[in-house]
């Protein structure tokens, strides 16, 4: 261990602001990348499912229309 106390660790020998700023921003950007990838997939799945349901509904409506035509 290079530091004697936690306060010393935070201070980073007077360079705390710069060190913690760089690490904070870097890991935030990386976290953002992870979240963006995960969120994109969620949205995509939702869209594809909605589109599938829409197609299904169109199919059902078509067969119903055809049946009605047959009965008339």
């Amino acid at each position: 261990m290079n530091f004697d106390s936690f306060a010393e660790f935070i201070a980073m020998g007077g360079y705390g602001l710069y060190v913690w700023l760089s690490f904070g921003v870097s890991f935030s950007v990386m976290l953002l990348l992870v979240i963006a990838g995960w969120y994109e997939r969620k949205i995509l799945d939702k869209e594809i499912r909605q589109e599938a349901y829409r197609q299904q509904r169109i199919q059902v409506a078509r067969t119903q229309a055809a049946q009605r035509k047959d009965t008339v």
Partner: peptide
């Protein structure tokens, strides 16, 4: 790197970036 590596003799702890 942040906790255990020794400080740089010139740059102090800023080198940890």
């Amino acid at each position: 790197g942040l906790l255990f590596a020794p400080s740089d003799y010139q740059q102090g702890d800023a080198f940890r970036i």
